[in-house]
Design a protein around this nucleic acid. Structure first.
Lengths: 223, 223
DNA sequence: GCAAAAGTGTTCAGCTTACACCCATGG
DNA sequence: CCATGGGTGTAAGCTGAACACTTTTGC
């Protein structure tokens, strides 16, 4: 910005990397791709790619997410920017990390393109991940957990219609600890973000459950 | 990161811009520099500069801050990364924004180098600022206010030794609203981050005030 | 009628808020 | 002795945590 302090080599390479979360088997999982080429050949990494010249960072993240999973219009938020000069052995690459929440009914079984891709339990990724991706995943987890304390963001990991028990299981999966059913329902109710539907579902055994939906305000936004 | 999605032109220009806050006259102020060249010649901007090839983003921010104000070892935290392709009319420039808190006893009257630089009330900057800097300052203010609700970060805007009344005035300046003295002191006490010293000061009129210091854990850290 | 999951209220403790007076000093 | 800012306690309301039983369905 400031013309005085321009460096001799002021060109950098900028990528966008995305921690993509989903819920499978009542467990929080992240999408990882296996690297087919060096550096870190054979290691698992979070998906990402270079930012194109005419797209915003949000657009780049949305595009990457779409390329990788085929989904659009899901929760996507900028996380943190990682710029240690040593983070990529090939040279200076700055990455703007994002995280996304994808519901299991929309998330493919694995990545959509040729690369080997699969979901891993967020708590047990195949360490060490490529580059500084362990740190990025850890930061994303921290942020996601933090959000649960003042929002009911678990919505974003569920289909449009869901039961409160499902929502509770999502929150428990993220926090890694059981929650009290009554208190959970009171808090969700107090947040005023769910709307009961006229339908119920019968999940096999037991009493049928009321279905709810939530009012999504916008998809990808500033914190 | 992902070799598949590399763009044809994967070189970007990356700057670090810093919203530098201080307290002057019991008012929250930000340091702005006047641009001497296009684009936005004559407009005010937050200080910043290009990231050097071998420094981390944190290092770049620290360096810029030092160049601009002469201070070191103050609170400095990454804020958000702005990458709209239209944000700089000269072409694509991504900026990693930081914000810093500088105590008035260490902050110079204005910027230390040749450029025209001065402090402006954070609530009344000379709009519009250059580039997207209005949005960056607004984001920084939001973050700073948010932090006050669960930390007593006002420390960082005061000298090493300070009175609780000073701290309260800092918080009031940031929030823009008066706080109850007794509740404020209880909360600061509960946070357990201040240590009473053996000294007092007499600030002119009235009863002498107890001095406190705080335990700074580390200077620039991940949120 | 029993197994399985859904749904619901109350009590207690801790925290936040509102609020008013006395204290130590300088001039 | 008065003006100035420093310093303190208490009651009320609210919020978060703990806790157990009834309801509706499928089999």
């Amino acid at each position: 910005m400031n013309p005085r302090s321009r460096s001799s080599s002021d060109q950098e390479r900028v990528t966008v990397d995305i921690v993509i979360f989903t819920i499978r088997d009542t467990e929080l999982q992240v999408l990882l791709v296996r690297r087919g080429i060096p550096p870190f050949e054979g290691s698992w990494a979070i998906p990402g790619g270079f930012v194109l010249p005419n797209e915003s960072l949000d657009d780049a993240a949305r595009r990457e997410l779409h390329e990788e999973t085929g989904v659009e219009d899901v929760f996507l938020e900028q996380l943190y920017t990682f710029g240690d000069p040593e983070r990529d052995p090939r040279g200076r690459v700055i990455t703007v990390a994002y995280y996304a929440l994808v519901s299991p009914d929309r998330a493919p079984l694995a990545g959509s393109d040729a690369a080997e891709a699969r979901w891993w339990p967020a708590a047990h990724t195949p360490a060490p991940l490529a580059f500084d991706h362990d740190a990025i995943v850890a930061t994303a987890l921290e942020r996601l957990r933090g959000k649960l304390t003042y929002t009911a963001i678990g919505f974003e990991l569920l289909p449009k219609k869901f039961t409160l028990s499902q929502l509770q299981r999502v929150h428990e999966a993220i926090l890694g600890e059981p929650l009290d059913k009554r208190n959970f329902r009171k808090r969700v109710d107090a947040l005023g973000v769910v709307r009961p539907l006229k339908e119920s579902v019968n999940p096999g055994a037991g009493r049928p459950a009321q279905l709810f939906s939530f009012r999504r305000s916008k998809t990808s936004e500033r914190e």
